[in-house]
Amino acid sequence: MDIIPAAVETFAERYTSPETDLLRRLNRETYLKVDQPHMLSGHLQGQFLSLVSHMLQPQRILELGTYTGYSAICLAQGLKEGGILHTIDINEEREDMCLRYFEEAGLSEKIRMHIGKAADIINGLDEVFDLVFIDADKAGYERYYDQVWDKIRPGGFVLADNVLFHGETLEEPSKQSNNARAMISFCEKVAADGRAEQLLLTLRDGLLIIRKIG
C-alpha cells in the first residue's frame, strides 16, 4: 500500500535540504548491491533524523538496526563534542560497507558498530542514552523498548520506525502480517505506558516519537 502519494513525496523532497553527495552514493550503492533496499531510511527520513539529532544535541545515541549505515550517519551529525552513537546489527556481511562510509563521513570516532543480537548487546551497554532509534526486527520492538527504557535519561526520546508497516496496520486483522500485528501491539503498549508521551508521525512508513516523562 502506498501510504503517502508519490506526488506528495516528490513535493516534500523538493523543499527538503538535499542529500549530501556521500549519502546519495550510499543510497545508490544500497539499491544496487544490497537485498531489500527499501529498508534504507532515505532522503526525507534521513534529514528528519539529522534535524532531531541537531535539536537534541545528544551525548549518547543508540540505534537498533544499522542496515547500510544511512540513518547512523544522519543521527551522528548532531552529536555533541565527544558524543558516541552505538549501532547494532545482526548482519555481519554489511559491516565493511558501513564502516567504509562512516570513515568517509568522518564519523569513525563517533560511531561504534556492534554485530550480534540486539537483545544480548543492549544489556552489556553501560550508557545513559539521550536518543534511541529502533529499526530492527518488528517482533522484537516491545522487548527492545523494555530493555532500553531504564537506560534513557528523563526527557530522552525513542524513535520507532515502520509502525505503519507498509500500510498493513490499516488493513483488516485477517489481512495483516505478523509484523503488522507486532507493530500494532507495540503502539498499544506505548500508548498505555504512563511513563511516556508519544506522537505517531506519518512520515515514510510511520515513525513513533516517544518521550520519557520525568
Rank of each mutant, 00 (worst) to 15 (best):
19 E>G: 09
20 T>V: 10
22 L>E: 00
27 N>T: 14
28 R>L: 10
28 R>G: 00
33 K>I: 10
33 K>M: 15
34 V>T: 12
39 M>R: 14
40 L>V: 13
42 G>M: 04
42 G>R: 06
42 G>V: 02
43 H>Y: 10
43 H>T: 05
44 L>D: 04
44 L>Q: 09
46 G>L: 03
47 Q>Y: 09
47 Q>M: 14
47 Q>I: 12
50 S>L: 11
53 S>T: 05
54 H>A: 14
57 Q>T: 14
58 P>F: 02
61 I>A: 12
62 L>N: 02
62 L>P: 02
62 L>K: 02
64 L>H: 00
67 Y>S: 03
68 T>G: 06
69 G>V: 10
70 Y>S: 06
73 I>S: 06
74 C>E: 07
75 L>V: 13
78 G>V: 03
79 L>M: 01
79 L>R: 00
80 K>V: 11
81 E>W: 04
82 G>M: 08
82 G>F: 07
83 G>D: 07
84 I>R: 11
84 I>G: 02
85 L>E: 01
85 L>T: 06
85 L>N: 03
86 H>T: 09
87 T>Y: 07
87 T>L: 08
88 I>E: 03
88 I>G: 03
89 D>Y: 04
90 I>M: 10
90 I>W: 00
93 E>H: 08
93 E>T: 14
99 L>N: 12
100 R>D: 11
102 F>V: 09
